[in-house]
Nucleic acid binder design. Structure first.
Lengths: 237, 237, 237, 237
DNA sequence: CATGAATGAGACTTCATTCAT
DNA sequence: GATGAATGAAGTCTCATTCAT
């Protein structure tokens, strides 16, 4: 039995945050303490009107970033799609990049919730891998294009450090944490470099997902094939 | 023993084009056979002056696309870096995208040459995988950033079909061909979906390479770890 | 005696629109009924600021199109002359051609107003012809070059149909309507092809006006000579 | 009987140059004295090769100026269409405008030849007018678009005076000469301002021809209608 | 808080002309 | 004389952001 702390802050695999979200935009309504007794989604001191604008803007941004990509989406387009004035955009986001990051964070948070639900009670490497893939596919089917779009590499645009990690990096680190735990319980071979493996897996899922989507692979086959390859690569032989 | 033709046009693994180059730009000097004994870079019927301009432009484009990325490189930057007039750029490339594609094609051609050299005489899966990774690392050290940059996804910009495949797709198909051959000689498990695996590998190398470069991993460890994972995933158990 | 409706929507010659204006640009304030009692130039729902910009742009465009012609006037010249930013131009006009068409439409509307005033109560062919010429001369003296410039043929630039008629065509059709009415009341010979005559007259006025202006003819003589020729050509002998 | 000289240099109507050509381009082979005994089209001292280039360039220029208009035709287009090098264009023409003027002059010369042929032996005003219209139509059918294109107003481009008259002006003066002669023999009313009438007629033919062409009028009707109007306007009543 | 008109630096591209070959 | 690669000023238009209302 394993009881000591680990990098994943003493959670089981099922409890590990695969994607940790970061806090960003001007008036973010993001992660609050668990003890908040305000009604969900309502932030004290922030008018309902303002939150409504932000909600509409984010919905519009998501739609357009997915459909057109980062570079072909203008703040004006987002405002118009949201049905608010062009200037309102800048009441909620520092600039276009800030808005994109908020979008990517939101997607990461949503995906993480799905992942948590799928991981509950799954213990073997194969189960965990399969469930994560299932979660990814499920999310992508409910939110077509959002994952691929939010993983867009905009690092070149990040002036200075910005103290943030790209979504792909955060996801890779989530995998690393899971693999570390699996290694501790003997499900993953001891000689696997979990950190590197985390990055490889994220890259593989990204490219594989794009291929599966583009060539419309059978979802079931896709998941079983990828699971097979990942498990063989990682498991104790 | 397996001797009949296959999708890879009856080449051994060592002969397979990992990256097939396509033909493109206005006066492309594209992929010629490796055995051509014409002096390198001289195309009959194209004046030396014009070829010299093109060479300078491509060198400048490569430098800037790598340093700044596609979106932050302007045609006039390329021209100035090349030391030619702004208009000269448009004598050689339809537009900025055409120039980028020529750059990506050139990189693919160069990488392919390195890959061919590394694959010569390598027979086992482990050897082949290791050599490809070595080739990739070798190329990346000689041409820092070129690979990552040339793999930039600009599909959203491609108006219509353009009859081209993105570099990542071509590379994935190269891997598929290699894996198919390996499968035929019993080095790769029969139940591996080689096509999907090709895409997963490219994605993994892309992301893993970026990580290795960013965090300055020890090259030897990186190669051995990745080789280990890939081989375990693919080989007959 | 003829009293029934005709193509000119039951107007007398004096009421016929010689130049029918069309509706065009993004926020056109186009032709409103003459009886409108709203204060001139104020359109409900369009901010005063925006209308002021548009007014300044149109005044600048008119000045420059007249002085330099269509091809030697750049959108940025118009913006600078108007004292607004370069981008403001494109808030009001799709492109340069759209601006030119708006200019030509405005000139046509203005000329039409002058024509209407001159035609009031004029009944004979000679009177009508003379008054139209007088109106044209009067307008040209108040707005030197505007007529010639607005009649510039830019048809070659009109992509597709655009659902518009060139100013010269609209003017020719105005003449046709007048001649048809004159024919009905026996002032114009029955065997005159009024449609063709309308085009001939517009061409004649255009070229004759340019000549008169260039060689600084005596206005009175010019009008009387042209009236004489037109009336002889058209009237019942 | 009137025998003294006049402005038309003592020619009969049939001999009057309706369009006088001017001399221009670098190596023009234009109007030479009637006594030249060189073989037609060959100029001594000018190599056959050079003349051949010029001929091809002019044919190409005519085609493109007609099809696309002055502003949308580039010297490069003309050279390519002619099948000569881009630089060759500037061996024959000072610049693009010089080429256009040469084109317009050539068209004027050709039309004049047709006019001369038609005017031979025609004595009455009606005959002369009809024949000129017939000549114009005949030329336009053999050379569609050339007339309209060569009458393009490029005066705004003429830097300084250039000592040339626009084609329309030359044509108008040709009409004036004819009308003056007709007046002397009592075919044209004494009170007609022949100079003004010349301009009006040219404008009318220009606009009327464009209309006839655009709406595909019946040629015979067109000619008879225009003849009728012109004759009525001009003849002694 | 919301609006949308205004901004102007700057993007991409064209083209009349020159000049080395 | 002929060539066509090269030139770079100039053109049209965009768009992230600001600010007066």
């Amino acid at each position: 039995m394993i009881t000591e702390d680990n990098d994943s802050r003493n959670k089981t695999a099922a409890e590990t945050d695969v994607l940790e979200t970061t806090e960003g935009s001007k008036t973010g309504t993001g992660a609050r303490g668990a003890g908040d007794d305000v009604s969900v989604g309502v932030v004290p001191g922030v008018s309902r009107r303002k939150q409504e604008s932000r909600r509409k803007l984010m919905a519009a941004a998501r739609k357009l970033f997915v459909e057109r990509g980062y570079h072909d989406t203008r703040p004006q387009d987002i405002s118009r799609e949201a049905g608010v004035g062009h200037g309102t955009f800048y009441l909620h986001y520092e600039d276009k990049l800030d808005c994109f990051i908020a979008f990517a964070d939101e997607a990461a948070t949503e995906l993480d919730a799905v992942l948590q639900a799928h991981l509950a009670g799954k213990g073997t490497l194969e189960e965990v891998v399969r469930e994560i893939l299932l979660a990814t596919v499920e999310y992508s089917e409910a939110n077509p294009g959002v994952l691929a779009s939010s993983l867009t590499d905009v690092t070149v645009l990040w002036k200075g450090d910005m103290g943030r990690k790209a979504p792909a990096t955060r996801w890779a680190e989530g995998w690393t944490a899971i693999l570390d735990q699996m290694k501790q319980v003997g499900q993953v071979a001891a000689d696997v470099d979990t950190r590197l493996a985390g990055y490889l897996i994220v890259g593989a899922i990204k490219q594989g997902g794009a291929y599966a989507s583009r060539d419309q692979l059978d979802i079931h086959n896709y998941i079983e094939s990828v699971t097979q390859l990942f498990v063989r690569a990682l498991k104790v032989q």
